[in-house]
Amino acid sequence: MPVTIKDVANRANVSPSTVSRVISDNSRISDATKERVRAAMAELNYQPNLIARSLTNQTTHTIGLLLPGSDSDLLLNPFFVQAMRGISAYAKKKGYYILFTHAEIEEDEVDVLTDLVGSKWVDGIILTTVKDNDKRIAFLQEKKHPFVVIGRPDDEKLTYWVDNDNVNAMFDVVDMLIKKGKKTIGFIGGSHEFKVTKYRLLGYLKALKSNGIDMDLNLIYEKDYTEEAAYEATMDILGYKQPDAIVTTDDLIAFGVQRALHEKNLDQVSLVGFNNTLLSQYKTPSITSVDINAEKLGMFASKLLISQIEKEAIETNNYIINTKLVERDSTK
């Protein structure tokens, strides 16, 4: 005969409702009681019926994660893998599962969100990118569905979000290169529709201005977040003039830049990426990159979302995660 929640309650000498609250990790239950109940569950080999819990509580203990891209390039960008690691680690600790999905264009993403919210498959949603006039954010706000975005939204006060200080992070990169004697510095970023591109471009422009260097639009490119698009942009820049350095908004972009520089025997051109992905240190030369703590971004996004879902007191609606420049051979 299967073990029931009442059996666990009797063994732990608590009420069935207390066992239920321990299973959902309710903050009102003391640690001592949680330990006693969990010990009883282990002794009896009790496994909670998640489907029954969902029907009773009208919750799924599942977080929806919306990723950009197609089936073929879904996880090519290591940033999303790193962020997912942080999201999953915190969610698992709190007893939540992850359901991830994707779409290539914003209209399709809104359709995906409509299905997720309407079907009640998930208790909350994490958006891994932010755009100008973001239709996905507007939809979730209208539906009053718990959500968090990784990135800085248009309305910073009404949205829960986590991000880096991308303006200052790129400012520091470009300022460092200028102090090394680099005057002609190219910029290659992802699409301008993404907020992260805009903020890192702003940091680049501020650093040029701060050091008395005029902006040259022929050195600035905003392309897709792909290695091939970055390769083509680099070739365009090299057709115009040879820069002293090129900064990028993502390591995946930096990989395409490096391939173009290597083909032209220009490995001496300084190169900087963002995200400090594992592969950047194994390139030849190894690539200097800004560590944005992607795993920590994911962890705090998960924390903010679960706090909303469980209606906990939340001290802040956003977290700014520190960055660190990791210098390697590409700028030495």
Rank of each mutant, 00 (worst) to 15 (best):
A40P: 10
A40F: 03
M41N: 08
A42F: 08
A42E: 12
E43M: 11
E43G: 08
L44N: 01
N45W: 02
N45D: 12
Y46V: 00
Q47M: 12
Q47Y: 13
P48T: 03
N49T: 09
N49Y: 06
N49W: 06
N49P: 11
I51Y: 07
I51T: 12
I51R: 07
S54Q: 10
S54I: 05
L55S: 10
L55Q: 13
T56D: 09
T56K: 14
N57R: 15
N57T: 15
T59V: 09
T59C: 10
T60C: 10
H61Q: 14
T62H: 08
T62M: 14
L65Q: 02
L65P: 03
L67Y: 06
P68D: 00
P68N: 01
G69N: 01
G69C: 00
G69Y: 00
S70N: 07
S70D: 06
S70Y: 04
D73Q: 06
D73T: 04
D73M: 03
D73Y: 01
L76G: 06
N77C: 05
P78H: 04
P78W: 01
P78Y: 02
F79D: 01
F79A: 04
F80C: 01
V81M: 09
Q82V: 04
Q82R: 09
A83I: 11
G86D: 03
G86E: 04
I87N: 03
S88F: 10
S88H: 14
A89C: 11
A89H: 14
A89K: 15
A89Q: 15
Y90T: 13
Y90N: 12
A91K: 07
A91P: 12
K92A: 15
K93L: 15
K93Y: 15
K94M: 15
G95N: 14
G95K: 10
G95T: 14
Y96S: 07
I98L: 15
I98F: 10
L99Q: 06
L99H: 13
F100T: 00
H102N: 13
A103F: 05
A103T: 04
